[in-house]
Design a protein around this nucleic acid. Structure first.
Lengths: 337, 337
DNA sequence: TTGTATGCGTTATCAA
DNA sequence: TTGATAACGCATACAA
């Protein structure tokens, strides 16, 4: 009942399995006529090599394990899309596993990868370096994406959140905004941490006299709405909001407008990520080319696997600011407002 | 250098590999004291079973191959998320492969799955049943999602596009709209075909005196923009547009508004899919619970693999209409206009 | 150029 | 209760 094996092909072509293997793998030490017979037999039987057996024999699975957290939709798919594109280009398959917040589950996810993949791509913005290092099989090559801190000299790709946040604060100041409030992401999330720090540092460097004001959030839209209500209720001045991601910015935007505020005339709003929604709402944000990062991560990992590169080092990806209507410059504003 | 194998554990515990296998797999025919020694040795060596070897021996990989087309972002991720959730719940891993339009690549994608997975989940709204049947390994259980036609009695999950489109036309007519134009999706896409047919059938059944007018599209925003321009330039009456998906509806919506049309006062607009954007633009649409479909597909496949179900048959998923502002009822409208 | 035999890491069968 | 050993499907060193 099962599929044809290499032995069936050998029998049909009246040769040994070794010859079949050689012929089908394109080795040159096989006579032309023999090869033809083998190829014909394989075709007739619809023979497809058993990848599992093959990888056991070769000690290469030509598969890459991908461990991602529960990302926001668009982000997740774009990342996987970029990875898949590069992986299939280089002859690898992707083994996917969502990593849930539970670090126990994460470890289990990593374990099931053993013996199925040649290397790992791990995005873990919320796991401590220590527990990540513990869960990561030492012998398995891995590329880390947006992991906090340095993990055991593993090659890593990181979004330059700090630079992005810095650029955004600079942009707002240049537009004439002075009292910039930051809605932060989850404290345990390294992206959120770096964006917050970028905000702080930019303010300290470019407008040291202006107040630093941070409202806690969790990357969800509701947090943005709550922050907006807090800002509206407060008596402290605020002419611009910089949220740590677009979803919070969007929630904030809506709540402000519903309360009768004009954006950006009364108060500017900016986000981070450039989700598709951002374009439609004309929300100023920071573009994160996540698909590109995913593809690059695969490329680096495959280079390692094939001994083509040293692998080491952290690569930083600079995101780009997309200025839109929600932060249009105040009339008469100058760069040094 | 490599990871510890079962033999290393056996050596360390001073038992045979057979005992190690038994102990670690929870068989009861192993003495308590022996089991403890084995477990201890495994832990000390950080032993993790080699899934590849295991699946070769068991003839079960505990992996599911997922072949998806190049879906719109949110759709793709939601689908995979639903699948992953159910798969990990039932102890399976997902092997992912984007299937590009090229049917050659698709066949290749399916081939690389052989020997790695126990079953297949295939979403192929744009491949003919014949070529899909040809590419599908006969011996591999598979569940089809939104595949055109019946493929070799494979169990299938399908979105009831026809019912969704029908419901939308009914909704528009009830709102007092009479001249409803449909912007179709790609001709080769079965979802698009069914939505178009639903539109035709609903109109024929509920408003046979009203004109059927279809503008060709391709599911992209630009097609919606082009359709809007066509509608604006035309002298034929049109008070509602029903696009085969949200992206085209959104493109249409923007172009109409930019041309000074009021929506829905001058012309109503509706889509299909309920992408996140739709909510923000208050676009009436049809909600497609794609994650649920993905999870259900996994569930059915695993049932088949574990002999728990017959598997056969086509399951239809009824989508739900989400009425929003872009199709608000005309003042004074009645259900029978 | 071809075939034989061994190993990849596991599980399962059969004896002991 | 344990151990030796034959699969699983393939690739490859070595012989012929």
């Amino acid at each position: 009942m099962g599929e044809a094996t290499i032995r069936d092909v050998a029998r049909r072509a009246e040769v040994s399995v070794a010859s079949v293997s050689r012929a089908l793998n394109g080795l040159n030490n096989v006579r032309g006529e023999t090869r033809e017979r083998i190829v014909a037999a394989a075709k007739e039987l619809g023979y497809v090599p058993h990848a599992g057996a093959r990888s056991l024999s070769l000690a290469r699975a030509h598969a890459i394990g991908v461990v991602l957290p529960d990302l926001h939709g668009e982000f997740f798919s774009e990342c996987v899309r970029g990875m898949d594109r590069e992986a299939s280009r280089r002859g690898y398959v992707l083994l996917l596993s969502n990593m849930h917040d539970d670090s126990e589950q994460s470890a289990a996810a990593l374990r099931t990868m053993r013996g199925r993949v040649d290397g790992l791509l791990v995005m873990a913005p919320h796991i401590t370096p220590e527990s990540l290092e513990r869960a990561l099989p030492a012998a398995l090559p891995a590329v880390l994406i947006n992991a906090p801190g340095e993990v055991a000299a593993r090659p890593a790709l990181r979004l330059d959140n700090h630079a992005g946040a810095h650029a955004m604060v600079e942009h707002l100041l240049a537009g004439g905004y002075r009292h910039i409030v930051h809605i932060a992401g989850p404290e345990s999330n390294v992206d959120a941490q770096e964006r917050l720090q970028g905000y702080r540092d930019a303010l300290a460097a470019l407008a040291p006299d202006m107040p630093v004001r941070v409202i806690a959030g969790d990357f969800n839209e509701e947090a943005g709405e709550a922050a907006a209500r807090q800002i509206l209720a407060s008596h402290e001045p605020c002419d611009a909001v910089f949220a740590a991601n677009d979803m919070m910015a969007i929630g904030c935007l809506h709540t402000l407008r519903q309360a009768g505020k004009r954006v950006p005339e009364d108060i500017a709003v900016a986000g981070f990520d450039d989700v598709p929604l951002a374009r439609y709402l004309a929300l100023t944000t920071i573009e994160v080319r996540i698909a590109e990062i995913g593809a690059r991560a695969v490329s680096r990992l495959v280079d390692m696997l094939e001994g083509k590169g040293p692998g080491g080092g952290v690569e930083l990806y600079a995101p780009e600011l997309i200025a839109r209507a929600t932060t249009a410059a105040r009339t008469g504003a100058t760069a040094h407002g």
